[in-house]
């Protein structure tokens, strides 16, 4: 089990995290850029000697007021965001680097890692000739062959396409569970990990802000009244939304609105005198453009995070500001069900 209670201070940034992670746990660490996710992984790996507090792995104190176990003794293998392959070695020598220095620990074997990550064709290649996705696969393989006691992944598949990620994750998770080492994975697509049973950990500005998954496209609302046309007036963020409640609702009932992005327009300002079913202000938390131009947005509404996926929309990434207020405009009344 990994137990940590660590702090670090940089100019204009404070990180303070207390968390435990059991053997076999897979933690999906997510949050906006600058939240401190990579720094937390570096602290656990032993690459931030300025960090204060305590890091304990099982009965071993990797860091406290008296001890600082250097990174090469920890076996907390970090897969860096930029791979950091050794440029003077070919792929095979990179893969074997950790294998020769695994401290006698047992771990996944060579052929298993080569097969899962489909590295057969890459083994003889020079690292400088690899694409971003290939580099990431080699870095992942190098880490697995080092027989980690704890695996720390910093966006390990950001350069791979969705199909390959979807193919790789289940196989890797199977491997992680077999060797029972805890895995902490920073991801900008945490949903991929949720589907595989990972535990969520959300960070913002150096602190853990949530340990639960964000509801995907769901929003709580309070029923105010039923209109003569059968639609219900519901309160969300002090705004009125018109919704359909097939099972009926009563004033003050709490309902869950099911937001469907194809019936929502995203606007940067409130639009007045608009024929719509309501509009609500939201604060942009993060956004990410996935494959097939699918944009995943995370918004905060009334202290709750919601995720919305928009497909085939034209948006200028540079015009989006994290923490800015935007508006969701409803072109159709959303469906609502009782939240109880």
């Amino acid at each position: 089990m990994l137990a940590l209670d660590v702090q670090i201070t940089f100019p204009g940034f404070d990180l303070d995290v207390a968390e435990t992670c059991n053997d076999g746990d897979i933690v999906a660490l997510f949050g906006p850029s600058g939240a401190g996710k990579s720094t937390l992984l570096r602290i656990i790996a032993g690459l931030e000697s300025e960090a204060r507090g305590q890091v304990r792995y099982g009965e071993e104190y990797w860091q406290d007021s008296q001890n600082f176990v250097p990174t090469y003794k920890r076996g907390a293998i970090l897969v860096f965001q930029d791979s950091h392959l050794f440029p003077h070695f070919d792929v095979e020598a990179n893969l074997r680097f950790g294998l020769k220095r695994d401290g006698g620990r047992s771990g996944p074997n060579w052929q298993e890692v080569i097969n899962i990550l489909q590295l057969d064709d890459l083994v003889g290649r020079q690292t400088l000739s690899l694409s971003g996705g290939e580099r990431q696969r080699v870095a992942l393989g190098r880490a697995l062959l080092a027989s980690p006691r704890l695996l720390l992944l910093d966006e390990p598949m950001s350069a791979l396409d969705a199909a390959r990620r979807a193919d790789l994750w289940p196989q890797l998770l199977n491997l992680f569970q077999r060797f029972e080492f805890p895995v902490i994975c920073v991801s900008h697509s945490p949903r991929e990990l949720q589907d595989l049973g990972a535990r969520p950990l959300e960070m913002k500005r150096g602190h853990v802000t949530s340990r639960s998954w964000m509801s995907d496209g769901e929003l709580l609302a309070r029923v105010k009244a039923q209109r003569t046309d059968g639609l219900y007036q519901c309160d969300v963020a002090e705004q009125v939304i018109l919704a359909k409640i097939p099972n009926g609702g009563h004033p003050d009932d709490v309902v869950t609105l099911n937001l469907q992005s194809q019936y929502i327009i995203l606007a940067r300002d409130r639009v007045s005198e608009l024929s719509s079913f309501g509009q609500i202000p939201v604060v942009l938390q993060s956004f990410d453009c996935g494959p097939s131009k699918t944009w995943q947005f995370c918004f905060k509404v009334d202290h709750h995070n919601i995720l919305l996926n928009f497909e085939h929309i034209n948006i200028d990434e540079k015009s989006l500001d994290i923490h800015s207020t935007m508006y969701l405009i409803f072109t159709q009344p959303p469906l609502a069900v009782s939240a109880d």
Binding site: L47, T71, Y72, I77, L78, P87, A143
Partner: peptide, 18 residues
């Protein structure tokens, strides 16, 4: 690149070995 040296140490390489 310091990151490459960090990667070596993190993979179990002692300072002289790195």
């Amino acid at each position: 690149n310091k990151n490459v040296l960090e990667a070596a140490a993190n993979l179990g390489s002692r300072p002289l070995d790195s």
